[in-house]
Design a protein around this nucleic acid. Structure first.
Lengths: 206, 206, 206, 206
DNA sequence: AGCTAATCGAGACGGTACGTCATGTCTTTCG
DNA sequence: CGAAAGACATGACGTACCGTCTCGATTAGCT
């Protein structure tokens, strides 16, 4: 059930224009931030007519989303990827989240990622696409890792995996979005440790 | 350290214009959503010259924030309020969060609240003001309730209260912002139960 | 000296496409008027690719001109036609001019004819083609009739025939183009009578 | 009965912007001709926002017309002017028409005047304004001169003055618009002489 | 009570961007 | 292989807002 119209991609479509647009979109987003990002600017930076953008993307948000999807996953298939599994769940989660935090703290990614999140917060259609094509698959990977942990007896049987993912990954995103506080490795560790404490199986009552 | 310039509020300022503007801002935000909200529209809806807005607020975000702050706390002092404390921490948290969820699900509040969050995500200065004047005080109330619970032995001594607040309240906000899934009472209960499990003191090893 | 490039008319050219284009051009001109007449619209109304138009006509004006030339003279050869000659010059001219006026007043012809005249006023190359292929031949017919009148002693010997044609036919076209006043049979009669008074041979001084 | 909406000219209107726009309009019209004349170009040449043009003029034609009206009559009141009257009607008419022809042949005036005429041919509303504010007053001057001639016994009593004006002035305009032939002093003389022959009182029948 | 200066509503101004339409060229697909 | 279909870069359209700026006309607060 595709929720967001995505380019039908006729064979006549110019692939070079497409790439130039996606690249320009990300570049400008990281230079200018959401508010000053304009279709007009993207078109001119990409050396492309505005109509070529309007022809293939229904909104600035959809374009930004496509740019993220295309340029950040470049070749690698999300479906095939997986979270690290060393057997130590806490360590693995900290590894992943520290990488995330590093990315979020990278000024090169900060602005465009905020722009994308703003669009997602604003536009329900885009939010649906985001869940379906980006967040959903990633969440699946996370749940897969947690399922493995559960099989290894490291997770309580009755824990809802979606809730578990929310507890583990939500706070970091939140703190970044709202700038509630600094995004440090320490914070990551605290979140993982505390959340995992609630997710571990109850020790057999003494 | 006041981060966001707030109206110096000379005595000559027209209070009727101020209220009309704040009201119009919230009303239009809930009618139109963030993207179509314009200073021009607010001025005309409030029956006010544009300059009167630009004179007192430095940005659309600051105005929106002021509107929230003024019209939603109307008289009641945040500092004096407190979270319910029946002695049952889980029940109290569920009560509060269910009320929050109900508000977030109310179409009358959805759009303007999204608008405000978008501004906060976008503008660091506004985010600072938001933390200082809205989110900060509320977080203090939450921490106060958790402190009481800790005194009552319902919370581990070594838990960072900010992390605790993040684990308890973050996931709900996240799910609403990103529309990851439906915001139901069941979800609230699961989050509270699971998070609290990790926050409770470790039972003496058997 | 052919001034306007006219279709070389290769034998491979699709005659059905040609007719569809010319017809669509005239139809749309009469529906929309000059300003809203577009190549794009003509192509789509004719069920034809844009390139097929650009291949055979150098400009919108040339196409419009061709449409007029082809569809209004349809078969009848301008060279063979002639103005009526009943022996009564004034009556013959009034007959012809009243017919002209009727056509100009016909809403079906008004808009496309204005469109053509606008192109002629604007584009010297098209004006040349217009003189050579449309206005010129017609003017020859008019002069021929006047020559006959001169032979019959109804016209002064020293009158320049081009000036005569201008005096007789110019005012009507002018009044139509500029909407200086209503185009009526009475006006036609007045113009013919007054102009002819100046064109007739001077009576032998008494 | 004002037919064309003309700027209400509120007191807040910037006169410097107005003049810059009118000047730029004429200048660009004479540089580029009708087809390439754009509001966008005029705005930018005048150093003015597009909206400032759209605020005060309803169409490109109305602007062009206003530019002509304002900049060519500059101060001098059309109502007060008059055609020369030396007592010799033919000579006076030739004087006036030769001046007209000279202007029409001036490349500086050719293009903008064609642009104006194109708009007039195209747009009935503009044509009405043109008749009311430009052509009408001028025609009145011409008729006034002819009336004087009639009083002096140089014109037949039964001649319709409008028809007379059409016969005398129409052919020159026509030849210019349609480029039927060169606009020379000789042509002017021929037209005046021939037309006047038809307008003079019939000599008492011998 | 009258004066003066800040504030008000209104809205024009130079701009930027919007999203649409048409231009004339080029490329792909089909009959 | 020619014609339809239509993508492309370009550029103008007319509109909406931006943030600044002037206008009188209120409307305080201070002589």
């Amino acid at each position: 059930m595709p929720t967001q119209k995505v380019a039908p991609d006729s064979s006549r479509r110019s692939q070079s224009a497409r790439r130039a647009i996606l690249t320009a979109a990300l570049d400008l987003a990281s230079e200018l931030g959401y508010a000053k990002l304009s279709i007009e600017g993207i078109a001119s930076a990409a050396g492309v007519g505005k109509q070529t953008i309007y022809r293939w993307w229904p909104s600035k948000g959809a374009l930004l989303f496509d740019a993220f999807l295309t340029l950040t996953t470049e070749g690698q298939d999300v479906g095939e990827a997986a979270l690290p599994d060393t057997g130590d769940l806490a360590a693995d989660l900290k590894t992943v989240l520290r990488a995330t935090v590093e990315e979020l703290n990278d000024p090169r990614y900060d602005l465009p990622m905020r722009a994308l999140h703003i669009e997602v917060v604003h536009d329900p259609a885009l939010a649906a696409a985001y869940q379906e094509r980006l967040d959903g698959p990633l969440r699946e990977l996370k749940k897969e890792r947690l399922r493995a942990a559960r099989r290894a007896g490291q997770l309580a049987e009755d824990v809802d995996l979606d809730v578990a993912v929310d507890l583990l990954f939500g706070p970091i995103l939140n703190r970044w979005l709202q700038r509630t506080g600094p995004l440090t490795a320490e914070y990551v560790d605290q979140v993982v440790d505390t959340a995992l404490r609630g997710l571990r199986p109850t020790p057999p009552a003494g």
